[in-house]
Design a protein around this nucleic acid. Sequence first.
DNA 1: ATATTACCAGACCGATCGGTATAGTTAGTG
DNA 2: CACTAACTATACCGATCGGTCTGGTAATAT
Lengths: 196, 196
Amino acid sequence: MHSSTITPIVSAKERLLASAGRLFHEHGINATGIDLVVRNAGVAKASLYNNFANKEALVVAYLEQELDGWIRNAHALDNPLSPRWERIAALFEALARSVELNTFHGCPFTNAVIELPECAAVGAVAQRYRAVVRTHLANLIGAGTAATVTSRLALLYDAAITAAKVGRDAALVREASTMAQELVEARRPEDVKPSR
Amino acid sequence: MHSSTITPIVSAKERLLASAGRLFHEHGINATGIDLVVRNAGVAKASLYNNFANKEALVVAYLEQELDGWIRNAHALDNPLSPRWERIAALFEALARSVELNTFHGCPFTNAVIELPECAAVGAVAQRYRAVVRTHLANLIGAGTAATVTSRLALLYDAAITAAKVGRDAALVREASTMAQELVEARRPEDVKPSR
DNA sequence: ATATTACCAGACCGATCGGTATAGTTAGTG
DNA sequence: CACTAACTATACCGATCGGTCTGGTAATAT
């Protein structure tokens, strides 16, 4: 048994995770039944329970996949040659565009914590996600910056996500972006606003 | 048929709304079955469907009740004689204390939007809630203030709620409070922080 | 050749979901 | 008194929930 299984080109587990990723995120976890995940993945029901102990384990695996995705996306959006304020703005701008395209379905971790409030494993992944975001923001603003500034940036990112999900308001997301830019550089709002 | 029904001291409808208020908010809407709401209210199942068309109608009524509650609470927390920064801080401080007591279950409207993402009626109440918060914040900071400041305050309140619900971090909630205070007055962080 | 592994198709399970229907009780009203 | 309205209690409905089990196929490893 070597590292990779060759058989069906893409394994049942991968197809299940891809299916769960779409359905859980777009329609919610509790609203998405096991049968639908299985059917959508084009996979036998037994294959689900061969790879995951139960639905909760599938949910946790889905969240871990989303965490990897967030990190990859954050690095894809990041241009290390750009000025700090621009590298941070890119994070918010991606959110704002997602709102405008009506493709934003909320933060998968916040959503999961709200949908399964008494599931400790979900809460744990959500905390890991928040630590990852915090670390990423800290790297973007530079090593010497006070922890307070990192906290404030993280708060503004939280705010932008709620403004996007509940408020569906791209302008509000961009206002959060402006606040973030003012935080990291001595940029006055007048300088920031016209540049989109 | 006068305005009030006298019969059972407290009507079935009121008991249902009280029960739904507790259960929906603490355990989630999708996780709370009709039968549980009815049993917890000490009411017949038929009484639910005499007062509400279906579960969705009960959810909307629950949210409208929560909206009234938010307004009443905001006024209870408010001391119009206090300086502006203090009136705003009270809003955040209530959140922070709720986190410390482990009694915070999230914003009912955000939770509902996430649990029922394709329910238009829920989205509508959530938008009304956001408008109410915005108006309240605008009143707290005074009539002459720029709309941008109101937006920023509302963003910080969103941020505090996510920090409370997902992060379970009272210190982060208070950092948002500090940001809000700096926004409304020319209060430097050094002046704000030590005062609680 | 054989045993193992990964998989599929689908029947099946008890429990619970949202919602309806039946029947009877209680209390205020003309 | 008769009537109405609000209520309780409970049986019942079809659908779906998460999860198990059986049986069969195709490819791999020994």
